[in-house]
């Protein structure tokens, strides 16, 4: 009994000594790599100020009624209670966000992959041109002004002229403010803008594939292009696919600029608003910063959760 006791006290002491030894070792390493920290420090300073602190602030402020004017009070979970139980508009914008995310996320993702695959079939010059044409919406987001010309609400808008000339419409349609059409039209436009960073990453992925594997695949009985892409290209491109997913999730959940510039802010009856535009409306127009922060925290959680699920799926696939 007593022997066992001494034994355990010795291991306890050992662990303690081990811990302090570990700290000392870490300190030695820190000293040894002083220069690494010096090089990383300037970037990290800005990263902490403009990314870490804002994320922490939104978590902190989401429990208060902060509005930049009155004295701030701690209000516990009441912002979250309002968000989930009382706010009817939030249900609408959450639904809109998910609809936008489904279209610009997965649809945009597969579109990016498919187009990158097709572009890869061309020679160098054509490839550059096509990449540019598809990527142009991301290069200058201002190109979306052209859509106002197409979906203009008067009789001169292209969509209206076209549908009126074949007799589908009797009078011009207010595409971007009518609650029946605006969501559909905005999805079309958002999808147009969804070929972004992921698309470039996929193009690069296809170009750096190991050519010899295709010949080996042909010998092993790969019959057509679909099998080729499924059994050879995709497994090799797993890292790019993962990166692309992160970038696509990031843009799918932050759909906002196009909506605000084309359909107004807020949109008619909030019927095409997303979590982001609603959050901006709360924080920027109504100064309900505490509540807006609760919305932000919800959005962070939603994005991290989606990212986790999708990364896990992709990893599982690439390991199989």
């Amino acid at each position: 009994m007593s022997i066992a006791g001494t034994g355990s006290s010795i291991t306890g002491l050992g662990a303690k000594r081990g811990a302090s030894e570990k700290i000392r070792q870490t300190l030695r390493q820190v000293k040894q790599h002083k220069m690494s920290y010096v090089l990383v420090a300037p970037y990290m300073l800005f990263f902490i100020i403009f990314m870490v602190i804002p994320v922490c602030i939104s978590i902190g402020l989401s429990f208060t009624n902060f509005n930049m004017l009155k004295v701030t009070e701690f209000v516990g979970l009441s912002n979250y209670k309002r968000l989930f139980l009382e706010d009817k508009v939030f249900v609408t914008v959450l639904k809109n966000t998910l609809v936008f995310a489904v279209f610009t996320g997965p649809v945009g993702y597969f579109l990016s992959f498919g187009l990158a695959w097709l572009i890869n079939e061309f020679g160098r010059g054509m490839r550059t041109l096509l990449t540019f044409l598809f990527y142009a919406p991301a290069l200058s987001s201002n190109l979306y002004f052209m859509w106002t010309y197409i979906f203009s609400g008067d009789a001169y808008g292209i969509a209206n002229q076209m549908l009126m000339s074949i007799g589908v419409l009797q009078e011009p349609m207010q595409w971007l403010t009518d609650t029946r059409t605006m969501m559909g039209v905005l999805i079309l436009i958002q999808l147009w803008a969804s070929l972004g960073t992921a698309f470039l990453s996929f193009i690069a992925g296809f170009q750096s594939l190991d050519r010899s594997l295709f010949e080996a695949g042909a010998i092993d009985g790969i019959r057509n292009r679909w099998q080729e892409v499924w059994y050879i290209s995709i497994p090799q491109m797993a890292p790019q696919l993962l990166f692309g997913a992160v970038m696509q999730i990031s843009s799918a959940f932050s759909v906002s600029t196009i909506i605000m510039s084309l359909a107004g802010w807020p949109t008619t009856e909030y019927k095409a608003d997303t979590i982001v535009t609603y959050m901006l409306d709360m924080g920027n127009t109504r100064y309900e910063v505490g509540y807006a922060c609760a919305i932000a925290v919800f959005l962070f959680a939603l994005m991290l959760f989606t990212n986790n699920v999708i990364s896990r799926m992709l990893r599982k696939y690439s390991k199989d």
């Binding site: 992160v246 990031s250 843009s251 910063v289």
Partner: peptide, 12 residues
């Protein structure tokens, strides 16, 4: 942080 575009962290 690649996930969080500037518009998402705009309020804080």
């Amino acid at each position: 942080s690649l996930l969080f575009t500037s518009v998402v962290t705009y309020i804080p």
